[in-house]
Amino acid sequence: MKKNHVFMAIALPALALFFIFHTYPALQGIFYSFTDWKGYGSWNFVGVKNYLNVFKDNRAGAAYIFTFQFAIVTTIVVNIISLLIAIGLNSKIKFRKTLRAIYFLPYILSILIIGFIFNFIFAHFLPQIGTVLGSELLSKNILGNPDLAWIGIVIVAVWQGVAFNTLLYLAGLVTISEDLYEAASIDGAGIWTKFWKITFPMIAPFFTINMVLSMKNYLMVFDQIVAMTGGGPGKSTESISLLIYRGGFEGGQFAYQSANAVVYFVVIVIISIIQLKILNRREAAN
């Protein structure tokens, strides 16, 4: 066989499979979003009615607000904490290998099961502590409070998310030569100046990747919520993924939730592009 034919013989099946299992379902989803299909039985075209309804739907609106609030806060908190830990792990410390292993541990664990464990902590352990301390706020399950439940989910997401991002930052930090810092020290630069003038510019590409990847992951939050609140109390922690799953199947709103999914997709693409643009420009400016 000719070389080019071999490459084609490899690429074409990959393309075909990917199209069949990824693109084709996506196209189907778009198609059904213009119908009134329940997921079974007969259907009719309804034009853009589903889309108009998504924009008028308070429940969907609330899910978008919750999901974004959660994703933005978690992304920021995860990145701050993991940057701090990475800097810590990169300095001259004892037990570096062990500590690094511990901080990376959450990455290998199932989010769902961690969620179940934290669910117990919030329902039984923290109230026990709160009662001992006499704190009114802590003595109740924060997952039962619609204003605080999302924080519980952020805590779990951060607990797990820090692991991977720390590693990424660490990968960036080890490439910075010690000499740079020493030169800066001779010039009389403080810790703060060193961070902004040396550390941060050097790890900026990692910062970009972390921000984009974290944001995208947290916009799809599902496992943590299923394990901890099931979307409650009320609908205060219902994420878009959960809404599509629940509404799409249980509510018999297959077509409607498909429209919701398409809107969601457009939103994610726009955000990713904006993020990349802004972060790249900042990087270039540095």
């Binding site: 409070n145 619609p146 009320g234 249980e250 509510g251």
Partner: peptide
Amino acid sequence: PAGMGAENLVQEFLIKQDKAVFLKK
């Protein structure tokens, strides 16, 4: 109707205690 999620709305109402808004919802 299935998929209305009445129980979550009632749960939310018991927290917020906003009768008029809840019934309309």
